[in-house]
């Protein structure tokens, strides 16, 4: 998809051009927001707000960053703004890479876990237990397909920190998925 062309067409008044972009990012962006916001209603509102902000900011978008990186940066800021207003996230969770993750809330049995098409949602539940910063790195990597350089820029941190956060996230996910797997065999 030629995003620059879509943006140009939208700025000339072609609504469909942006609708196509929205459609392309519909699932990844909403998934990212949903996983960080936690509530579907909030995620819906943030999704709207992100696109509204993007629409207003598009005339100033200079293609210096990839569109995905630019868009998810807006989402990142919007989630933080909203979380500050609603106090979703504890500041310690925002700032630390704490190794103590809360317990998964799933009550499904291991048998359910391996049922077809359930793996994604089990992984999703495991991801939900990660500390915010690690969860965000994981989501930006998986949903937005951003490089660690781009992720580091969004989180205003170093590449090494972003890589370390991903490494911790993988470790914790592996532990959680491993315990589920061991119950199956």
């Amino acid at each position: 998809m030629d995003e620059a062309d879509h943006i140009q067409r939208f700025l000339q008044g072609d609504a469909n051009a942006l609708c196509e972009l929205v459609e392309a990012y519909r699932k990844p962006l909403f998934s990212f927001i949903m996983q960080l916001a936690g509530k579907e209603n909030d995620a819906d509102e943030i999704f709207q707000e992100v696109w509204l902000k993007a629409m207003h900011a598009l005339p100033r978008y200079r293609h210096k960053d990839r569109f995905a990186s630019w868009l998810f940066k807006i989402a990142h800021r919007q989630i933080i703004d909203r979380s500050r207003k609603r106090k979703w996230l504890l500041s310690s969770d925002m700032e630390s890479d704490g190794h103590t993750a809360p317990e998964a809330t799933s009550e499904t049995t291991p048998r359910d876990v391996v049922s077809d098409h359930e793996l994604g949602s089990r992984v999703r539940e495991a991801v939900a237990t990660l500390p915010h910063a690690q969860r965000e790195v994981f989501l930006l990597h998986m949903d937005a397909d951003l490089t660690f350089k781009e992720i580091a820029r969004i989180q205003k941190t170093s590449i090494n920190t972003a890589l370390a956060r991903m490494s911790y996230a993988r470790e914790k996910l592996r532990d959680q998925l491993s315990s589920m797997y061991k119950e199956l065999i």
Binding site: V22, F30, E40, Q48
Partner: peptide
């Protein structure tokens, strides 16, 4: 397993666009 925004939300967004 990605969730999707509600159709209502998408409709609202299209109008805004």
């Amino acid at each position: 397993s990605r969730p999707e925004p509600s159709e209502n939300s998408m409709q609202h967004l299209r109008q805004n666009i």
